[in-house]
């Protein structure tokens, strides 16, 4: 590993570590955030119990498989918000000119920015996902796959957030649009893909990255398929590259921007 990458990684990890240390200063609030987030997620089990009470199978899935969707979505989203929480508030940083302090540092601006915060409740999300897997459909192979896909899912969701957030470099009003798109990934990922067809399916696999972040991985976990697994990995790399490209293009614009709002 080259020293540049190593130094960069060291800074990122230190940043996340300090974020968590900061959150832990108030121990009660920290633990409450985690615990209540778990309860929060668990409340949706009620929704599915009710729906499955009305119909024994939804989109070809029973409770066990639907919980896989939920678990993977929670853990991916959790990981993304433990390591890259700032990716989700990127527009705010861009619009209020808060990238300045990152620009005077000799490190990757993108990585420094997105690792500069951690949502402590995200730890609850991650743990909830793990608990769901262990409770509803445990096997060693599945757990390993689950961990791998939680990472790729986190990368895909983060990259998508960066991609959407970077739109704010060009359009101030893009903030609301971007955050709506990102939220929609979360909304979709907690419903099984079997209920969607036609245009909706196209949307989920081609426009919003839910298909690659959640649906395909769940298929692989239900019945293993190497090609699908490789597709997910490739997609994660590709989307990250696209996100980095757009962000740095935007950053040049940020530095040469003439809008006062961004610079006071």
């Amino acid at each position: 590993m080259s020293t540049v990458v190593k130094n960069q990684l060291r800074v990122c990890l230190l940043s996340v570590k300090y974020n968590i240390m900061r959150a832990m200063v108030n121990r009660v609030a920290f633990l409450m955030n985690i615990l209540f987030m778990i309860l929060n997620n668990a409340s949706f089990i009620i929704q599915w119990l009710i729906l499955l009470g009305l119909k024994p199978e939804i989109g070809g899935y029973t409770l066990r498989e639907i919980m896989l969707f939920w678990g993977l979505a929670a853990s991916s989203y959790g990981l993304a918000n433990i390591f890259f929480a700032r990716a989700f508030s990127l527009p705010n940083l861009i619009i209020s000119g808060k990238l300045d302090s990152f620009l005077v540092q000799p490190k990757s601006v993108l990585l420094s920015v997105i690792t500069s915060a951690t949502a402590s409740s995200a730890i609850g999300d991650f743990l909830y996902g793990l608990a769901i897997i262990c409770a509803f459909c445990f096997s060693v192979q599945r757990l390993l796959l689950f961990l791998l896909f939680a990472v790729t899912g986190a990368v895909i969701i983060t990259a998508f957030a960066v991609l959407m957030g970077s739109l704010s470099f060009w359009f101030v009003k893009a903030e609301v649009f971007g955050s709506n798109m990102v939220n929609s990934t979360i909304n979709f990922s907690t419903y099984p893909d079997g209920i969607f067809d036609g245009a909706a399916r196209f949307l989920l696999y081609q426009v919003i990255p839910v298909g690659m972040a959640i649906y395909r991985p769940v298929h692989v976990m239900i019945s293993f398929d190497l090609t699908e697994l490789l597709m997910v990995l490739g997609y994660a790399v590709l989307l990250s590259a696209a996100a980095a490209f757009l962000f740095y293009r935007g950053l040049r614009r940020y530095s040469s921007s003439n809008l006062m709002e961004a610079r006071i």
Partner: peptide, 17 residues
């Protein structure tokens, strides 16, 4: 702000390799 100056200096040290 929640960390000590020492921790902070360590962080800035890492930033500058």
């Amino acid at each position: 702000t929640h960390l000590t100056p020492y921790d902070n200096f360590r962080f800035f040290g890492a930033i500058y390799d």
